[in-house]
């Protein structure tokens, strides 16, 4: 292995560990969601596998791996097989730039911190639609096609409002680097949720739509489309779509924390910089809890209302926010 410099090997190991942590987090997020939905509906949730159902993710994984891997007769085999992998690959990409906290010497704890971090996250999210669209098309089933097309239209419609809701943050912070945005919030002693609560709300709503979560889970609306884009998938390929969806949930929660809730900012971080990781994870956990809470509370939207809500309400509102914040920032100048 003498061709590779040491830092590249260390980096590859770090990346592997990070991906392992993210996938484990996914597994327990899924268990948590089932438990919580149980409590919301006065049930217990999974209890049989291990104490308190803690082995449930492992049991699910083994079950999925041991199921027969079906490919429908008419399917476009190559695309059918790579679509789930593509979905999970693009979901994992965002974690390359997310700063989880700060080291004592002031460098962000991240795989990489490019100065266009937020654009990279948006780009990775935008590519994520391919996994779903291709999976829905390649199954050559009517349900899958409708689910995939719906999902594509929904994702691109809400992506606009999402991109626009981030611009006020960029204007206040004056940088597109995620670590820089967090540092700007700490420097001003102001979480951007306070001046920018409407963009923060828009980002929250579009984040739900981008991750196909209730009340925007129309791509997989069980009552109308069987299971949407993954109707024909079985075995681990079916599970892979869920991995991608839940990893995306964690991603948008993390981005929301970084942009609007000060990242790892919190009490006592000046004395103990490593505490930023703890605060960051606590905030991401709260975001995820709220996302699951919404699923238990809200009914699913009708498709025409979903589209008009995105185009006629969220888009103009976010443009108005951009104009107002731009006016204030421009009038205050470089202060």
């Amino acid at each position: 292995m003498s061709h590779f410099p040491d830092w590249a090997i260390i980096l590859a190991v770090k990346s592997g560990v990070l991906i392992f942590i993210v996938v484990t987090a996914f597994a327990y997020l899924m268990l948590l969601e089932r438990k919580m939905l149980g409590w919301f509906q006065l049930r217990l949730g999974p209890t049989w596998c291990g104490p308190w159902g803690l082995m449930q993710p492992a049991a699910d994984a083994i079950k999925l791996v041991l199921k027969e891997d079906l490919t429908p007769a008419g399917a476009d085999l190559f695309i059918y097989k790579i679509a789930p992998a593509l979905a999970v690959l693009t979901a994992l990409l965002a974690y390359a730039v997310i700063p989880f906290g700060w080291l004592p010497d002031g460098t962000p704890i991240a795989i990489a911190s490019p100065n266009v971090g937020i654009l990279f996250v948006l780009a990775a999210g935008a590519v994520g639609v391919y996994g779903i669209a291709l999976g829905g098309w390649a199954s050559q089933s009517k349900w899958s096609l409708l689910g995939g097309i719906r999902s594509t239209a929904q994702l691109i419609s809400y992506e606009l409002a999402m991109g626009l809701s981030i611009i006020p943050v960029v204007m206040l912070a004056g940088t597109t680097s995620l670590a820089g945005i967090v540092a700007a919030q700490s420097a001003h002693h102001l979480w951007y949720i306070i001046p920018l609560f409407i963009p923060a709300w828009i980002y929250g709503v579009t984040a739900l739509a981008e991750t196909n979560r209730a009340p925007f889970d129309l791509p997989e609306a069980e009552t109308e489309l069987v299971a949407g884009f993954h109707t024909e998938y079985s075995s681990l390929r079916f599970g892979t779509f869920f991995v991608a969806e839940y990893i995306n949930m964690i991603t948008v929660s993390a981005i929301r924390t970084l942009l609007f809730f000060g990242g790892g900012d919190g009490p006592w971080v000046a004395q103990f910089p490593l505490l930023t990781v703890v605060w960051f994870l606590v905030k991401v956990g709260i975001m995820l809890f709220i996302m699951i809470w919404w699923r238990a509370t809200l009914p699913r939207l009708r498709y025409d209302r979903l589209m008009t809500f995105g185009w006629k309400f969220l888009l103009p509102t976010s443009v108005a926010c951009v104009i107002i914040v731009a006016g204030v920032v421009a009038a205050m100048g470089n202060r």
Binding site: L11, S15, G16, I19, L93, Y95
Partner: peptide, 8 residues
């Protein structure tokens, strides 16, 4: 990021 991409 390219190395991370390869691992992913």
């Amino acid at each position: 990021i390219a190395i991370y991409f390869i691992v992913a």
